[in-house]
């Protein structure tokens, strides 16, 4: 079974992002970039499927700037067999990214596409669902457990009310939630080996994808600051404040 894993290069989750001084966008100059945490979980799941003998080949794919090779090398060090970079200097929207991924799916015919549920930069939570629409495949978003049996995949999904289980025909798209697994760290020998693995590059134009943006960023602002609060001495003072000052309990 061939597995495609989509990984995005994003700001590291520990970075507190600030606007640029002209407030046109966020300031990403010199901030630490990483593989999106949910994509890391997707890669881990693919590697576990290979270790179980279910997956035979894992292809990591990223759409983004040349530097995304770093994140693809991370995926290769974690266990992906080869990688594809769809290289572009534009900031693409999920629809355009999904179209690029669709073109690669057409060429590679994977049986399973693993993705993150959300990229922590735009917090869009869209790309997997949109790729599923474009390919016509079934989708299981927010996955916390997957089981593959022949040409079917059964997925437990994290939903507002609790957990839901769905079964999909393969090929299918699964987006990883936080509890799908705990990703491993790449070992030094594997990082060295990853440098020699195949990494092919193409562009959206090569794939025939129109990436013209539909949504324009007009500017950014900081959210409203909260007023500085106070420290209370004890529970009695806390209860008194909540009853008589904030009036939120009676």
């Amino acid at each position: 079974m061939k597995v495609l894993v989509a990984v995005k290069r994003v700001v590291d989750y520990n970075v507190k992002v600030r606007p640029k001084s002209d407030m046109t966008d966020v300031d990403l100059a010199n901030v630490k970039m990483s593989i999106n945490p949910f994509c890391e979980i997707a890669v881990e799941e693919a590697v576990r499927l290979k270790e179980k003998g279910v997956a035979t080949e894992i292809i990591a794919i990223s759409v983004g700037p040349q530097q995304s090779q770093e994140q693809l090398r991370t995926a290769l060090a974690l266990g992906a067999d080869r990688a594809i970079l769809v290289s572009t200097d534009e900031v693409l929207e999920p629809l355009a990214i999904a179209k690029c991924l669709k073109a690669v799916c057409d060429a590679e015919s994977p049986d399973l596409i693993l993705m993150g549920k959300q990229a922590i930069d735009g917090d869009n939570n869209q790309t997997g669902q949109m790729l599923a629409a474009l390919t016509g495949f079934g989708q299981a978003t927010f996955a916390s457990e997957i089981t593959i049996d022949g040409d079917k995949i059964t997925v437990i999904r994290e939903v507002d009310g609790g957990l839901q289980t769905v079964a999909l025909n393969l090929p299918a798209i699964v987006t990883a939630d936080l509890r799908l697994n705990e990703p491993r760290y790449a070992s030094l020998p594997n990082i060295m080996k990853a440098k020699k693995k195949q990494l092919d590059t193409s562009t959206p134009a090569d794939l025939g994808v129109d990436v013209a943006p539909r949504v324009k960023m007009l500017g950014v602002e900081l959210p409203a600051e909260r007023q500085a609060g106070i420290k209370v001495a004890d529970v009695a003072e806390l209860v008194d404040k909540l009853k008589n000052e904030a009036k939120v309990i009676s």
Partner: peptide, 15 residues
């Protein structure tokens, strides 16, 4: 909100 709500973006759609 984007970036975990650290920034609020204003966006315009042409769709």
């Amino acid at each position: 909100p984007i970036y975990a709500g650290n920034v609020i973006a204003t966006v315009q759609s042409s769709d």
